[in-house]
Design a binder for these strands. Structure first.
Lengths: 222, 222
DNA sequence: GTAAACATCAACGAATATGTTGATTTTTGT
DNA sequence: ACAAAAATCAACATATTCGTTGATGTTTAC
């Protein structure tokens, strides 16, 4: 009845009591995914702060405790939902930065691809952006540190490309690279306030291209 | 002892029980201000969502109930702290929009003045921006509706100026006015993520001018 | 110096949050 | 059909929130 006493329950004792078996039973994985998807909807509505496990349970019309059968804490649910896609974005930025395009083209591509990514994974990356905005998360240390690192990588990609462009003369120097970089990230990040792929008149790619044009045409040193 | 039965306590019964007197007793106003200032610090650290009245009390080292002696609810505290300065910003935007500068100069001025305002009232306007980001506030209806209205006014100022510029040929049409407008607001709004006046290498005005240059030089039609 | 107004606090009640557990229902395999 | 495993739930314990209230200190005025 009780869980085997020899299971290495290092922390979170609660969940998945009769497990043992490989975690990949057909239905288990499916249910877990359903919960994650419901959580995304709730997080999008209420923010990570405001979203309670109760609210996620209500979204699915099930009992709150059932969720703990699949995940062991709210934190784990955040992680389940957000980490993979945020990480993918980091890699994308690093690849563009490492490519051999001229700096203005790198910037343009970065801006467009980030916007496209926001649209494709909507609303996941926006949830992440909003959360990271409020510096509340200082407590959930492990998770929040990783997320911050992902951010920093992307920021550094922008900064480095701008420095490169200043150095090789392909970009006109209009201000500190860091300020410019944050500006560009701000434009695309801010779309979380108004861009809704399902009802938008313009595609994420079109918006990205508009923004790239807006910011880069004035910096090009042609 | 009890509050006079004839006082028109329409709602929030709690606060200021023995008042009657004009609200402007010397110390009362001072204390109320101290509380507001402590609240600003806490809101800045934790966000409006995450900030509890307890945390504000702790910030001052006083009892939680004492705060209710000065304010009657968390909402009133938000309002006390944020409304005036947000409103001032709205007026500023409206004035620039109504001036007779050429559209590109209006845009430049708007961007710079908004940034300057962020710096001057730091961190107040950033608290407001962050809160408005998460759409959580739908509940605190009265307050949140007003704040949304202020936002909309500023957005519309940008949109209208861009349309004006497209129409009179002073701005090159690079995309939908709404998209451009949100982009410009995004750049300045995003500064809440990194701009700290006390330690920054560049002034709010310099940053605003850099951003204005970044976005407007590419749109100027000369 | 003393009474009234002012300011503070401990304690309470009602909500809501998180995470756990024992029992119960449902599904699955044979 | 039936036993074992999987999934769900009601209920519990604990913590934290908000807003209120009666009592207790502390100023102020006269």
């Amino acid at each position: 009845m009780k869980a085997d006493p020899d299971t290495n329950e290092t922390s979170g004792l609660g969940r998945r009591r009769g497990n043992a078996r490989e975690e990949s039973s057909a239905t288990y994985q499916r249910r877990r995914r359903e919960i994650a998807e419901a959580a995304v909807r709730v997080f999008d509505r209420l923010g990570l702060q405001g979203a309670s496990i109760s609210a996620v349970a209500a979204e699915l019309g099930i009992n709150r405790a059932s969720i703990y059968y699949y995940i062991s804490s709210k934190e784990e649910l955040f992680d389940e939902v957000l980490r993979a896609v945020a990480e993918r974005n980091r890699i994308m930025a690093a690849e563009i930065a490492a490519s051999d395009l001229p700096p203005p083209d790198k910037l343009r591509k970065l801006i467009v691809e980030i916007m496209v990514s926001y649209g494709e994974h909507y609303p996941l990356l926006y949830i992440y952006i909003r959360e990271n905005l409020s510096q509340v998360s200082d407590r959930r240390t492990g998770w929040s540190k990783d997320m911050r690192d992902i951010n920093r990588t992307i920021e550094n990609a922008f900064i480095h490309i701008i420095e490169q462009g200043y150095a090789d003369g392909s970009l006109r120097d209009i201000g500190p690279p860091k300020v410019i970089a944050f500006g560009m990230l701000g434009v695309v990040g801010w779309t979380h306030r108004w861009f809704r792929p399902a009802t938008a008149e313009h595609s994420a790619r079109e918006i990205g291209e508009t923004y790239a044009e807006m910011m880069i045409s004035g910096m090009r040193a042609n």
